[in-house]
Amino acid sequence: MIPEGFSYAVPNTLDDAFTLLKEFGEDAKILAGGHSLIPMMKLRFASPTHLVDINNIPGLSYIKEEGGYLKIGAMTREADLEESALIKKKYHIFMDATKLIADPQVRNFGTVGGNIAHGDAANDHPAVMMALGAEVEISSPSGKRTVSIDEFFFGFYTTAVQHGEILTEIRIPAIGERTGTAYHKLERKVGDYATAGVAVMVQTDASGVCTKAGIGLTNVNPLPLRAKRSEEALVGSRLTEEDIAKAAQFAAEDCNPTDDLRGSEEFKRDMVRVITKRMINKAISRI
């Protein structure tokens, strides 16, 4: 399997990258980790005329808490996330999720930004970011803009990142007190795309009443999906078994999975229900 020919450029600054993207026009693609793009090019499902490799641009890879946010540079590798002391200590959901993304070699190259910017509901970070209420920073020659993760995904492989723009940072409200997170996906074998995946964040007050909840679903909807009714069912509740069951049931009802090799629509809904229930409980156990 061999890609079609293309021209390749490897700018050293963001500004140079913008210039190249402008010059090459719509036929250019950004090469980040490349572990979604290059396989598609090998199969000739994608045949960009120009590749702009942003791996040499410094300052796009970091994981830090700053100004009330966890900030993840778009070029941060999945493996960096897995090995970050900060993530291990506070952001358990990423530990759950990264372990299930493809395999170790792919995680050495695959980037968090790319996982989101690819615009694929089968990827795992979109749901995680939804659960965490992330914002995405998009840069262009005219400056930076911030888009809520809820307004980021437009359609299959299309996102808020317009041609000539580059996703540069993901910002997540720093996890505060009494907050738990968890992610799991059912997969046919390790490294597979999700049959159904569920990301959960819950926060409670001192009395145990849920004050905030985020639930994102992987690969059970044309776009990454926020399970709004499920979140609403939790907020204000005491997170009893019934509350959780209700939230899980809503998630199952509100997603729109399709029949495929991973299972029927009905099966996937049922799995969304089970995993949502389990991930809410797991998140609670981590509070």
């Binding site: 490349g34 572990h35 290059i38 490799d53 070699q105 050495n108 190259f109």
Partner: peptide, 19 residues
């Protein structure tokens, strides 16, 4: 096709030589 690039294990079928 796994090799080490700067100490990281990599699938050399999924990287361009220019990289």
């Amino acid at each position: 096709c796994t090799i080490l690039i700067d100490g990281k294990s990599a699938k050399s079928c999924t990287l361009l030589a220019v990289q």
